[in-house]
Computed example of a mutant assay.
Amino acid sequence: MYRALKYIGPVGLGATSPQLFRAENDCGEVKVCVVKLSSNRLGSKVLVNELLAAHFGDWLKLCFPPGGLIDISPKVLAGSRRLTAAAVVPGWHFGCEYLQGVGYVNKYNLHQAVNKDQMAGVMLFDHLFHNPDRTENRKNLLIRKERDGYKLYAIDNSHLFRRGKWTTGMLEELADTITVNHRRSYGVLLKYYLRPAQLFKYAAAVKNIEDAKFAQFMDSIPEEWLPDKAERQALLEFLVSRCDKACWVAEQLSRLIPNIHRGTDIY
């Protein structure tokens, strides 16, 4: 969790109009966070989606920037004319740590990344929860030069469940389906860099997620973000159902890996 200290300004990109805040995390460290406000034009369900990704990123050690709930106090809001004019409400919003010095991933720099294996987990996550936006929006996959080499970071999980603003009916329709995404960087990763064993390693980790962790996630969703109890129950049932299908999803993705890279380690 984070506590907002000071408003910095708008990011300037994104359908959810993200904002920058200086914030303090649970360890007392001060970070700059990209914040999606509960009053964003897509609605609070996109914050639920982001929170889901933050939990999975932590459970599976994915290359998502650290993120979680951020509390914005009336005092911080009062210090900004922009936020006051926008009638932003105090309370819980979603924030993730801002990454400085990044570039967008393309076919010319993807090979430099030292953590391409983590993308097997990101791709599995995106296909489990129907996120096509990682390749439809080229700005959602970043690369940054760090001390131990260039690293990939996957950002912006607003558009899970295909469009972000899901309904119980949509979850029912999506529970048993998959649309394999092999566009742009995902196609390059499957063709040249990923192996079936990497996909199935993450699939096994997904299937081993304890029920208590799902309950922990559901309990962490602020009441005002998802007040409908039927929708909460539908989301929980969807998560459990989809995670049970992790190996099936990994198998669909592994079929796009060329035979020369498949070896005998598919399962």
Rank of each mutant, 00 (worst) to 15 (best):
M119R: 00
R144L: 09
I143R: 01
I143L: 06
M119W: 06
K116E: 13
D133W: 00
Q118E: 15
N106M: 05
R138T: 12
R147P: 02
A113H: 04
L141A: 12
N140E: 06
F129Y: 14
N137E: 06
A113R: 01
A120N: 03
K151R: 15
L124T: 04
D126Y: 00
F129S: 07
N131M: 03
N137T: 02
A113S: 11
R147M: 14
L141D: 07
N131Y: 00
P132Y: 03
L141C: 11
G121Q: 10
F125E: 13
N140K: 00
D126K: 00
G149Y: 02
N109G: 07
L141P: 00
R144T: 11
N140M: 02
N131P: 03
L142D: 08
N140R: 00
R147K: 13
M123N: 03
K151P: 08
N137F: 00
R134G: 09
Y153I: 03
P132M: 03
N137C: 02
D117V: 09
Q112T: 14
M119E: 13
H130N: 10
L124V: 04
A120D: 10
V122C: 08
E136I: 01
L110T: 14
E136V: 06
R147H: 13
N115R: 01
A154G: 02
T135G: 10
R147F: 13
D148C: 10
H127M: 07
D117G: 02
P132G: 08
F125L: 13
N137H: 06
P132Q: 11
K145L: 15
Q118D: 15
L124Y: 07
Y153R: 08
H127A: 07
R147T: 15
A113K: 01
A120V: 05
F129H: 08
V105E: 13
N131I: 03
Y153F: 13
L128Q: 10
I143H: 10
Y150V: 13
A113I: 09
M119Y: 08
D133Q: 03
V114W: 05
N115W: 03
G149N: 05
V114C: 09
Y108P: 07
D126F: 00
Y153Q: 10
